[in-house]
């Protein structure tokens, strides 16, 4: 992974990253381009796989007035691109403990207590526009407000908690946390797999155990069981 080795001008592009002009091979992501050009970058870099949400950037492409939000590790460099790394702390204003919701009957009331802003959604569509994963956030919030948590959570499957919708929400709803709440209550109250429960019981009673003494014998035992 030596980014300095390559030096083919015909395959390079020039772009601006945090006001620094940088030339880099066009096969690189903007983070790789920064490294290639020898600029240190430590914060705002995470999994490099597009799922941790730490590398959100603002991008203005050449000849465009539009400014988009994307994930730097997933963004291929382009000629004339202008990129700004946004590294800001965005703590959620909402706090809750699943174990304090007594039954699934209480979820809806609790939701509105924890997220009182959610029903104030003004439907500006900003969250949908800003989401680098293309999630229908506004609908997700709507569904949660209506108490349809399973459906709401399903919309947030690909959410990486980059918090862009949070900073983009004029009503301070914290939409990604609404989505995560929806997902969590669904798992917490409605996932009761019988195969898992049976196995837990068999382990509790000692019916299932592991013998570490001898590999041969182990195979036989296993054969008998199945």
């Amino acid at each position: 992974m030596n980014y300095e080795k390559k030096n083919q001008t015909e395959n390079e592009v020039t772009l601006t990253i945090n006001a620094e002009q940088i030339t880099a091979p066009k096969t690189l992501s903007v983070i790789q381009a920064l490294w290639h050009a020898g600029y240190p970058r430590v914060k705002g870099v995470g999994c490099l796989d597009g799922v941790c949400g730490s590398c959100s950037v603002m991008v203005r492409r050449a000849d465009s007035t539009e400014l988009t939000m994307e994930l730097g590790c997933q963004l291929l460099v382009e000629e004339g691109m202008d990129v700004f790394f946004s590294v800001f702390d965005t703590p959620s204003q909402h706090s809750y403990d699943l174990s304090e919701i007594n039954t699934s009957w209480d979820v809806q009331t609790e939701f509105h207590r924890i997220f009182p802003e959610a029903e104030k959604c003004r439907h500006c569509g900003g969250c949908d526009k800003v989401c680098p994963k293309g999630i229908s956030i506004e609908s997700g919030v709507d569904l949660a407000v209506k108490g349809r948590f399973r459906e709401s959570g399903e919309l947030f499957v690909e959410c990486v908690m980059c918090n862009l919708c949070m900073t983009g929400c004029p009503e301070f709803i914290d939409p990604n946390h609404v989505g995560l709440f929806s997902r969590r209550v669904t798992g917490y109250f409605h996932t009761r797999p019988s195969n898992l429960i049976n196995q837990l019981e068999a382990i509790r009673t000692g019916e299932l155990d592991v013998d570490t003494s001898d590999d041969e014998q182990v195979t036989v035992m296993n054969g008998e069981k199945s």
Partner: peptide, 8 residues
């Protein structure tokens, strides 16, 4: 994990 709210 399910009790933390994880889905499978």
């Amino acid at each position: 994990l399910i009790q933390q709210g994880m889905q499978f």
